[in-house]
Simulated scan of single mutants.
Amino acid sequence: MTVHLIADSASDLPSSYFEANQIGFIPLNVSLDGKEYEDAVTIQADDIFKAMRDGKIPKTSQASPETIKNVFLQYAELGEPALYLAFSSGLSGTYQTAVMVANEVKEEFPDFDLRIVDSKCASLGCGLAVMHAQTLCVNGNTIQEIESSVKNFCAHMKHIFTVDDVAYLARGGRISKTSAFVGGLLNIKPILHVEDGRLVPLEKLRGQKKLFKRIIEMMKEEGGDWENQTVGISYADNEDTALSMKQQIEEAFQPKEVILHSIGSAIGAHSGPGTLAIFFLTP
């Protein structure tokens, strides 16, 4: 039986990928200048980054229960199984809301086989997991097999984040305002990662050259089996920097593929323009 896949806008995959693969789409919400928008639907990342450079402070919120329910009902009415791979519960309440909504839908459609997986991943870390799940769906795997494989895939997904201006993380409560002030003065670039679904600071370096060198070192220390894996790079209004990082990764590791895509509004509203993130699997 066909297994349908659902993902949200925090996976930072292009809308063309959702459309081409008929993946259900759940947008998170963004507010700017007192107006509410749906991420990647009624507002795009470029709009957010321009607003942030102009000093505005966008806010984000989880996907609405109504939006989630409407997507779930599409598949419930088909009577075919579906799996929703959700943005990390440590960074958004969307997963918890989806679980609540799923229980409501199952009261109306008790035979509907809906699985909800907390990816504990963000941006293309989640996006790569969606791509992995989609391959399994196309190959005809059962929903049990897909759920198990995706959970294992997510558990091995490494995230390495850095930001151009730590002040944006401070606004979102990710680091202290004092740290942001000092970091800005000294051109300090933080390296952060996602641990158990939450953003955690790892190191601080001065300048982009040292930053790139350290990222490559971390990939050597923690990655492997490069010829068989896809590396993801997401960026925020700094595609040239991402392309430079891509070149260094290809020269160092020769991975199967390196994919690039802009960070979306939901995550970019917290990390700010100039963010760079690298995603790969650990052994």
Rank of each mutant, 00 (worst) to 15 (best):
K56V: 04
K59E: 13
S61L: 01
S61I: 01
S61F: 09
A63H: 12
A63R: 07
A63W: 13
S64T: 15
S64C: 00
P65S: 05
P65N: 04
T67H: 04
V71K: 03
L73Q: 10
Q74C: 10
Y75P: 14
A76K: 11
A76G: 10
L78W: 13
P81A: 03
A82H: 12
L83T: 12
L83C: 02
L83R: 02
Y84A: 12
Y84N: 06
F87R: 04
S89W: 13
S89E: 15
S92E: 05
S92A: 08
T94G: 14
A98P: 09
V101L: 11
A102H: 07
N103H: 15
E104I: 02
E104A: 03
V105L: 08
P110K: 14
P110S: 11
F112G: 07
D113A: 12
L114K: 15
R115T: 07
R115A: 09
R115H: 13
R115V: 13
I116P: 08
I116G: 05
D118W: 14
D118N: 11
C121Q: 13
A122C: 09
A122T: 12
S123I: 04
L124N: 00
A129E: 01
A129K: 09
A129D: 01
V130F: 00
H132D: 04
Q134G: 01
T135I: 02
L136V: 11
V138Q: 03
V138D: 08
N139T: 03
N139R: 07
N141I: 03
N141Y: 15
N141G: 03
Q144T: 12
E145R: 15
I146T: 00
E147Q: 14
S149C: 00
S149V: 10
V150P: 04
V150I: 12
K151V: 10
N152E: 13
C154P: 11
A155T: 07
H156Q: 05
M157Q: 01
K158I: 05
H159F: 05
H159I: 01
I160E: 08
F161R: 00
T162A: 00
V163K: 10
D164E: 11
D164K: 09
